[in-house]
Nucleic acid binder design. Sequence first.
DNA 1: ATTATTGTATTAAGTTATTAATACAATAAT
DNA 2: ATTATTGTATTAATAACTTAATACAATAAT
Lengths: 123, 123
Amino acid sequence: MPWELKSDRPIYTQLIEQIELMIFSGVYPLGSKLPSVRDMAQEAAVNPNTMQKALVKLEEDGLIITHRTSGRSITEDARMVEMAKTKLAQEQISEFLEKMQLMGFEQKEILTIIDNMVKGMKK
Amino acid sequence: MPWELKSDRPIYTQLIEQIELMIFSGVYPLGSKLPSVRDMAQEAAVNPNTMQKALVKLEEDGLIITHRTSGRSITEDARMVEMAKTKLAQEQISEFLEKMQLMGFEQKEILTIIDNMVKGMKK
DNA sequence: ATTATTGTATTAAGTTATTAATACAATAAT
DNA sequence: ATTATTGTATTAATAACTTAATACAATAAT
């Protein structure tokens, strides 16, 4: 796992994204144990608190479970992973729709525009 | 125009939004002259540079034209206003779609989810 | 030509957010 | 019981961003 950390955005958000992807893609299988905060921090060459911050967020999203003194593990509930994915998506979406409405777009317009843009996307 | 400025977000972004709405809604008609930066700043009870920052952004978006020493005016081109609106929208959208794709969503999924959420919106 | 008004550039101050350093608390392992 | 390992909490340092203060430059108005 090549932790790719750029400096144009907060490190902890990048950690969140990459760990998420590792969970979604099975690098960390459902139910498996995660390395300790300190180990993960060292591997990513990051301060333990920064890694901690990322892990706490992932826990809030339901992807990770914390066992007070015996470390953390990935949830065993596959639906939970799907839900977390969807929850994150919906956060993005409502944030997005809110902005669009503030800009004065009607719902129909929004759908039309997105539809066009999606069609215009590569692949 | 009751400049409503809260402190939970940068002031200049709020200025941008409100001026945009004033343009879209005709408070500042196409081609009309804007008050000077200093006047607008005073009216909004804000530092001139903060207002300046907002105006520069609006200019980049094509809504406003700057006449070096004789102030600024709203563009006369109605299509320009529409385009600016659309441009802003598309920035929001591509940013959004990018995130969604990073999260591993397929295009079809994205459309479906948005469709559902829009249907669930009030009004 | 002078003055007043315009936008701009530069710099500093203030504020918020991010990251790091360190100490603490709980418990599994021995 | 002791020790080592775990996550947590608190505080400090750093960095980034936002806002403000001030000085500059260009030109329309007189």
